[in-house]
Design a protein around this nucleic acid. Structure first.
Ligand SMILES: [Mn+2]
Ligand SMILES: [Mn+2]
Ligand SMILES: [Mn+2]
Ligand SMILES: [Mn+2]
Lengths: 220, 220
DNA sequence: AAAATTTTTTAGGTTTGTCTAAAAATAATT
DNA sequence: AATTATTTTTAGACAAACCTAAAAAATTTT
């Protein structure tokens, strides 16, 4: 059913992380994986015949449903190993990624499910990222108040606490709603206001009062 | 200094296990690794240029000192993972080998040394085989009383606890001494006596009192 | 809209590790 | 010793995953 090479898995996982919005480009992926663009094109052709990505020449690519399923299993392995390394082997949290990058390709499902059990079903890896369960279902729900979101870390609006018409008027004007992907670009300590970037639009400025009511979840 | 591919490592390890005595032949190795003889010849040429094997065409091969050093590090990784899988993840002892076959190729030294520590420096894997330490030194000395040796598992006599002349007379008569290789063929519950086979000789019967004083080490 | 720039793909190689088929060397039989 | 059989090596191919250089498409600038 599923058995992919280390290279294929690395490409699939990288696409998953890059495709937050829209499609991924050849250059983005080649930068992420430290390969040449020509190699990316080669691999995309292969992943297309395996029905793991949607791809049309010059048009970028994204994972199919099956590709996403595979990606989540790889991410599950990666994050479980990271948790194991930090929690049990006492690695520093900044050392775990590199080793997990190799361990994630050992594909035995039984190994991973037993590891999960041994670790007592951890829900987040040492970096705070959620660990998919054995069906590949990922905890999507860690919502963070926009005032606590770090600069340049993209998030998707998942909840707005004040739902008054005044609030909705303002949000409508800013073109922000549930599912809107945004990024905090700058914070001003004077009044805690901030400049944010909503996809396809120029940066816009919002007050602390507004930010306080917007909750965001991170994508993985 | 050391960084070998998964294929190279599998060949090195297989040679180590096969070279117990004398040299290893192309066919032996190709049978062990499920490849064709031509592939073995190719790899031997490569390992020779890397100075990991002694090899002359048509004359068989064995590991160099460096090759042995590398082999022991791979075996260390393999057996530590096997121990982890059995002890911590509750795998059955007959399931661990296959998974360890992949895990052994994740080469981080820090990973393995920390795993070793986490496991509290186990000295034997779930099959009773000794685990090399972080310098690749292997415990050669596990001596097992002949009464505890399983049927048909060959061992070499390493120690005899009672060294009286009466004992030595009996041992001499049975042609058993330090270094003698033997195998338990049958155990009789009536009096705990057993039939054993000493190389080149017909099977012989020994008492429980005698077996109790003979200690054996396994070969690896 | 044309020209210039950037991005992406194609064409053709390289390395690693495998294979088949044929040739050469060694070992076993007669 | 000669013949036969077995083992091992060589020669030539192939797939996977990369690469460089050139061509083609898309995008941006003038
Ligand atoms: Mn990886
Ligand atoms: Mn992580
Ligand atoms: Mn292996
Ligand atoms: Mn073992």
């Amino acid at each position: 059913m599923l058995n992919y090479s280390t290279s294929e898995e690395n490409y699939i996982k990288a696409i998953f992380h890059l495709q937050k919005d829209g499609t991924v480009t050849t250059n983005e992926l080649s930068a992420e994986l430290q390969t040449r663009p020509a190699s990316v094109t080669d691999m995309m052709k292969k992943l297309k015949t395996k029905k793991l990505v949607h791809y049309k020449a010059y048009r970028g690519f994204r994972l199919t449903a099956e590709g996403t399923r595979v990606a989540l299993l790889i991410i599950r392995r990666h994050r479980l190993w990271e948790f194991f390394l930090a929690e049990k082997l006492k690695f520093n949290w900044d050392e775990v990624h590199e080793v997990a990058e190799d361990l994630e390709h050992v594909g035995s499902k039984k190994l991973i499910d037993k590891l999960d059990e041994f670790l007592d079903f951890p829900r987040f890896d040492p970096h705070g990222d959620p660990i998919p369960d054995s069906n590949g279902k990922i905890e999507n729900t860690r919502q963070v108040c926009l005032t606590d979101v770090p600069i340049n870390k993209p998030g998707v609006v998942g909840h707005v606490s004040d739902q008054s018409s005044e609030m909705l008027e303002l949000l409508g004007h800013k073109k922000i709603g549930i599912g809107t992907r945004l990024e905090v670009k700058k914070k001003f300590s004077f009044d805690q206001s901030m400049e944010i970037k909503v996809r396809q639009q120029p940066p816009t400025h919002i007050s602390w009062e507004l930010a306080k009511n917007i909750f965001v979840k991170y994508e993985n």
